[in-house]
Each structure stands twice: as C-alpha cells, then as structure tokens.
C-alpha cells in the first residue's frame, strides 16, 4: 500500500495532498495545472516535498520529520512519462533492458518475453526510438519501466500525446497490466474517457487539494 501526505509550494499555489492507494490502478484525476505530475514526481523522488511522508508498504521513501529522503534510483518505482523519454542512443531492446542491467541483475529471458508479449513490441526490438510511432514509443516506455522490476508503476498522462486511435491501441495493454495484478499503478490524467476503463480507485484533485476520493463515479 502506498500512503502519501505531502506539502509543496509550487509557484503560485501550494500543493497539500494526502491519499492512499491499496493496489490496482489509482487514478489521480483533475484539470491540467493542478499539481498532479508534481505529486508523482515526489513519489518517484524527482521532486522534494517541503513537508510530509511517503511510504510504500513498510518502506518509508520520504519523511521530513525523520529526515528520510530515499534517492530516486533506490526507490524502485517505475515511471512512464508523458513523452516516453526513451534513450535515443539505445535500441528498443537496450532501452527495455536498461533497468535490469543497471541494477546488476542476471538476464531473465522469461520476464523479458512476458513483457514483450504483453505489450506486443517484439517486432520493434532492433529499432531505434527515433523511428517509433507515438503509440509504439509509449508501449516501449511501459515495458522499460516494468522490466526494471518496480514495486509500483507511475504513469503521467501516458496517452496525452496520442490521437484517439493510438489511445485505443494502448488502453487494452494497460487493462491487461492492471488485471494481471503485476504492479499497483498510479495513473495521472485529466481525461475521464481515457481512464474510466482503467481506474479501480479515483482521487480527484483540484487547486492542489484532494477534493474527493472514491470509485469511477467520480470521473463523470
């Protein structure tokens, strides 16, 4: 279970957020510019909260009172960015393998094949990220995050840069991911139609505050 309670001054408003996520797909839902991305950046360790506590199960990732701030690379939190952020100098295969390799783990062909099949990216392995379509890029980005064996997956508007057709192309993979109960997900979105099928739990955010928590009914 992920528990988050953070405060952070962000330019013209202050983020003051508390929520928990028990598994499945928790959607952080709200209009653009309300600090949703900042929240998952704080969970990932890319942004430091001013105050608060972030814990994943029994593992405290951040606690200002206890002076705990685990660096991003030790948090084992996967992150799928809005714009993919694949490494342009590496092949798709090396991108997918990056997390395992950097972590010093032995190759696990079964896990690799499983993720490649799940996301249907087997045909792309020898290509360079520059030659991928937007939808392909995001599928590879999801695979890359998964193959680093994260304890949780953060997705920041992973479909926002794609047209409707491409969105429909990726959504089934995300559903499969959720239903396979492989890793809990935190999914940031401002688009209700995109996340209705995915959300198992919704946290509504507006103006830097949590305005409601509950199920998919909050998306309407």
């Amino acid at each position: 279970m992920l528990s988050v309670r953070v405060e952070k001054a962000l330019g013209d408003f202050t983020l003051d957020i508390a929520f928990t996520s028990a598994g499945g797909a928790t959607v952080l839902f709200g209009p653009s510019g309300t600090g949703k991305t900042s929240i998952i950046n704080m969970i990932a360790g890319l942004l430091r909260p001013d105050r608060g506590r972030i814990a994943l199960d029994d593992d405290v990732l951040f606690d200002d009172a206890a002076r705990i701030d685990v660096p991003a690379h030790k948090r084992r939190v996967g992150y799928v960015f809005q714009e993919g952020r694949l490494f342009p100098h590496l092949s798709v295969k090396s991108n997918l393998d990056y997390g395992r390799w950097i972590g010093g783990h032995a190759a696990d062909p079964a896990a690799f094949t499983h993720v490649v099949d799940l996301l249907d990216i087997g045909a792309l392995l020898d290509r360079r990220p520059g030659k991928l379509s937007g939808g392909e890029r995001q599928r590879v980005a999801i695979g890359r995050a998964l193959l680093a064996r994260p304890r949780m997956l953060l997705l920041d508007e992973p479909l926002a840069s794609l047209d409707a057709g491409r969105k429909a192309e990726i959504l089934p993979y995300l559903e499969r991911l959720r239903d396979g109960a492989e890793v809990p997900m935190i999914y940031v979105s401002h688009d209700a139609s995109e996340v209705t099928r995915i959300a198992s739990h919704v946290v509504r955010i507006d103006g830097g505050r949590v305005t409601a928590t509950g199920g998919v009914e909050l998306l309407s």
Partner: peptide, 17 residues
C-alpha cells in the same frame, strides 16, 4: 534533455551511472 537523466534514475541508475 535532463528529463532523460531523470528517467534513468527512476530505472535505478545512480548519478554516476
């Protein structure tokens, strides 16, 4: 783009890596 470096750190790479 330093965002690529952020991405690498979420994948487990220390600053030196």
């Amino acid at each position: 783009d330093t965002k690529l470096e952020d991405a690498a750190s979420t994948l487990g790479a220390s600053r030196l890596w």
